[in-house]
Design a protein around this nucleic acid. Structure first.
Lengths: 101, 101
DNA sequence: GTTATACTTAAGTAAATGCTTAACCAATCG
DNA sequence: CGATTGGTTAAGCATTTACTTAAGTATAAC
């Protein structure tokens, strides 16, 4: 999932899709690459759970799956809070030592 | 930066460092790979800004740089809120149409 | 029913990744 | 001093990644 967000083109697609659903060629338009390349990114994004796509007639409509984005956020928040807790304990320890002085 | 978080071994290192600083070999210990491999991951993490390292005597001490983690979080939050805003506007639009009916 | 559109598949390739081993330095320790 | 510990450099290698072009297929428009 972080793997999926690692590529700038894929992040651009996710940014675009956060402003609403889009077709494959709409997503491809701002990107300087061939359609098959876009397709490959799209497939990766879909198997990573970040987006979902549905084919209606001959156009495939893509939209983000916000749950996945949330999971990435949760991982980072968990790390940050672990770090901050440690920082707090360190602060408490230092304060304790200050008292003893 | 998401690139740096894309690899499981690197994420494991970040998780470990969120519980406090560690030496290179301490970081390597739970990982089933050679020391040079760990070094390479470490260098990538450092150039991505996620960690910082300092050599004291012959041991290199590594610690996380929480600002970088925060930047990743910010990106995700920005996307999520863009998505949620869109969702709200859609809701308002649907409510509006309901009134007109 | 032909033609254009919107993808899709397949196959190939160049560069980046994630390792490895072997050899090498520089601080300790005895 | 000599050996050990903790890390570092260099080189090589197998995979994976991020594309490409060429050749489909299926729906929609005319």
């Amino acid at each position: 999932m972080f793997q999926a967000l690692a590529d700038p083109s894929r992040r651009a697609m996710v940014e675009r899709l956060c402003r609403g659903p889009a077709s494959v060629s709409e997503l491809a338009e701002p990107l300087e690459m061939s359609l098959p390349a876009v397709l490959q990114h799209l497939q990766l994004l879909e198997t990573s759970g970040l987006i979902k796509t549905e084919k209606v007639g001959r156009v495939r409509s893509c939209s983000i799956e916000s749950k996945a984005l949330r999971r990435a956020e949760d991982w980072i928040i968990a790390r940050r809070s672990a770090w901050e807790q440690r920082f707090d304990r360190l602060g408490a320890y230092l304060a304790e030592n200050e008292k003893k002085k």
